[in-house]
């Protein structure tokens, strides 16, 4: 290199590379685990459109702007859009999936506590994007 010895830089680059390998490996392992949808997950069809969310349960019941699920069960969301791109988001459960016309994207979660959480749109979709919000209600199992 430029005349003088450069070992501090080599060590530094080595450390950075090691860190990146570690971040990558952890991320890979975690993502692999969380992408595995449980067999018994119930399907909910999530439709985004300007500017509200519709949820359709397996039994055909529909909800607008509100979603009721039972604690301790796994749910698989099939996220679709009727017009432009949106992004379905329950921030408290790190659920995030784009709703893109012409595609069905899936994401799942299993709420572990009774409670209420915000649902929002996280992809710009126009005029009322800022208020394309809803509420998730996690309730005790009915039966």
């Amino acid at each position: 290199m430029s005349g003088h010895s450069n070992w501090p830089e080599w060590i530094y680059v080595g450390v950075v590379i090691a860190l990146m390998v570690w971040v990558g490996a952890e991320a890979w392992e975690t993502e692999r685990l969380i992408e595995h949808v449980p067999e018994d997950a119930k399907t909910i069809i999530v439709t985004g459109q300007q500017w509200f969310w519709t949820f359709e349960h397996e039994d055909g019941t529909k909800e607008i702007g509100e979603l009721h699920v039972e604690v301790g069960k796994a749910y698989k969301f099939e996220v679709i859009s009727k017009d432009v791109n949106h992004s379905f988001n329950i921030h408290d459960y790190v659920v995030l999936m784009d709703a893109i016309p012409g595609r069905v994207n899936t994401v799942w979660f299993a709420p572990d506590k009774v409670g209420e959480h915000d649902i929002q749109c996280r992809e710009y979709c126009g005029l009322i994007h800022y208020n394309m919000r809803g509420t998730l209600y996690v309730t005790e199992p009915l039966s």
Partner: peptide
């Protein structure tokens, strides 16, 4: 940026 790159973490940060 490294946090964004790690895929599971990006689902927290993306578009926020």
């Amino acid at each position: 940026g490294v946090v964004n790159s790690a895929m599971p973490l990006d689902f927290t940060t993306h578009d926020t």
